[in-house]
């Protein structure tokens, strides 16, 4: 009962935010929600299914470029461009998942890392399409004829889509598929013995996770005006990984919490690259030393102690 009240209060506050907040706060809120969708997606792959895929930023970028190019070319409504980006990312994720089936652990991490860097190279080199190293201007996207120009315009859309993804994630984790994900994470052999289609589940996790990343990219285009391939590299994947690890791998609440806390950190420290790196590095090491299960692990331990 208490939880439900809390959820309603938070929801009301989120929907009321544009009435009181300034443009910068709304920009920050939009950005944090993009991080939330990214984290939820990576959490499905790494946290739930235990597949160490490190190409998240590539799928995010595919979502961004697809949405931008489609918008520039056709002026299609934002939900169409967003879905197109997410679907293309999911399709490529499906292929990557299928060819990665033979690999696990470190080999999987390295090959997906290599894939991610290769995709970033494509973003940076395919100048006629992506603008290459000069980056690409993002035109305002349109929603049923309205142009989304400012952060304020985009906020409600970003909020609704993010909430939809949050609900979707909760549904998935409670479904058969969610159980199959966790079964594969704990032991592939045991999962197979229980009748889980291990290959199918792994591919599904890759595609689903890429779908989230692509959608996050689409959301990003609704309130940003510029994209540069530099920001779609391994550093971004690691940032999202940090979010879910600090939050607690395999926990939806952890993924959201981690995205909010670290997203805020990275935005506030953006001008101070060296501090950002030192703090990130220290958080990663300390968290692995003293809270290997993240903030959620700490919370659970506290509750169990009572």
């Amino acid at each position: 009962m208490k939880r439900a009240t809390l959820a309603v209060v938070i929801l009301l506050a989120l929907f009321a935010l544009p009435m009181v907040a300034s443009g910068y706060i709304l920009y920050l809120a939009n950005l944090l929600m993009v991080f939330v969708v990214l984290s939820l997606g990576l959490n499905i792959l790494i946290g739930e299914t235990g597949q160490f895929g490190l190409a998240h930023a590539a799928f995010y970028g595919i979502g961004i470029y697809t949405a931008v190019l489609l918008n520039n070319a056709t002026g299609a409504p934002v939900l169409v461009t967003l879905l197109a980006g997410a679907s293309l990312a999911a399709l490529i994720g499906l292929v990557l998942g299928a060819i990665s089936l033979r690999m696990r652990d470190i080999y999987l991490a390295l090959s997906t890392f290599a894939f991610g860097e290769a995709v970033r190279w494509v973003f940076a080199s395919w100048t006629p399409v992506t603008g290459g190293p000069n980056g690409l201007r993002i035109n305002p996207s349109n929603l049923f004829g309205f142009k989304l120009v400012t952060d304020r315009d985009a906020y409600l859309l970003v909020l609704v889509v993010t909430l939809a993804f949050l609900l979707l994630t909760i549904q998935i984790t409670r479904s058969r598929l969610g159980s199959a994900f966790r079964a594969v994470r704990e032991s592939e052999i045991a999962a197979a013995a229980m009748g889980v289609n291990v290959r199918g589940v792994k591919i599904a996790a890759f595609a689903l996770s890429a779908f989230y990343a692509g959608a996050a990219g689409g959301l990003f285009t609704t309130f940003s005006s510029f994209i540069h391939p530099e920001s779609l590299g391994f550093m971004t994947t690691i940032m999202v990984l940090t979010m879910i690890v600090v939050g607690g791998l395999g926990s939806v609440v952890g993924a959201v919490g981690g995205a909010l806390i670290l997203g805020l950190f990275s935005e506030l420290l953006r001008q101070l690259l060296s501090f950002q790196e030192i703090i990130y590095g220290a958080i990663l090491m300390l968290c692995m030393m003293y809270a290997p299960r993240g903030l959620m692990g700490l919370l659970e331990r506290k509750q169990a102690g009572r």
């Binding site: 690691i238 060296s274 790196e277 030192i278 703090i279 990130y280 590095g281 090491m285």
Partner: peptide
Amino acid sequence: GLSYFLKG
């Protein structure tokens, strides 16, 4: 973490 820490 070590990697980012040292770079920073």
